[in-house]
Amino acid sequence: MPVHDMEISGTEPRLSTARAQGLIACQRCGLVHPAGTEHCSRCGGPVRSRDPHSLQRVWAWLFAGIVVYIPANIYPMLRTATLLDKEESTIVGGAIELFHHGSYMVATVVFVASILIPIGKFIAIAYLALGVRKAVVMNAHQRHKLFEVVEFIGRWSMIDVFVVAILSALVQLGSVAIINPGIAAVSFALSVAFTMLSAQSLDPRLIWDADEEFK
């Protein structure tokens, strides 16, 4: 059951943000401080109204994430050696192969998790960062939802790296089958980490700043 107690001035419910009132809020514990405060008196962490370099860091990490995502797709993710042959498979190659073997379900999961979601995240973060400066189609509520989705999904992309780690540790059956990780695992892990850092650098309060007529 939500409890609202929102009016900040007297009887008339007039809504306002900490920044609009010249105050600084702590993003960890919520406590509001007078302008000029540098450390939160409740949780002790640094506070600032807005991070002036937020967008700069978002773009820098995003760019880094996209750059390392390229070798992640060019180089092999898994190196498999069986009795009969040796093969190296890339992310896309692995998905196509699964598809040919008739594992449509797994092929779709791999394709969505390793290709659609990473690229979707790049686009979503770029869109959110652009939306801070320019008017875009989605309103603040929708962009805030998008940001929550990106933050939630971001970590889950690391699953590919773990799958490679488990397969490589597990499938070490001498001459029958051996799976070893490929170098793409490293760049894929970096890409996931950089994209997470990019999303974390985006101060969500910036998404709302343009939306000052409170609905």
Binding site: V3, D5, M6, E7, I8, L15, S16, T17, A18, R19, Q21, L23, A25, C26, Q27, R28, C29, G30, L31, V32, A140, H144, P204, R205, I207, W208, D209, F214
Partner: peptide, 18 residues
Amino acid sequence: RALIACPQCDMLHFEPDI
């Protein structure tokens, strides 16, 4: 009453007594 702000959108609220 102390004020807190939403960490996501900076909206001011009274410190809730929940």
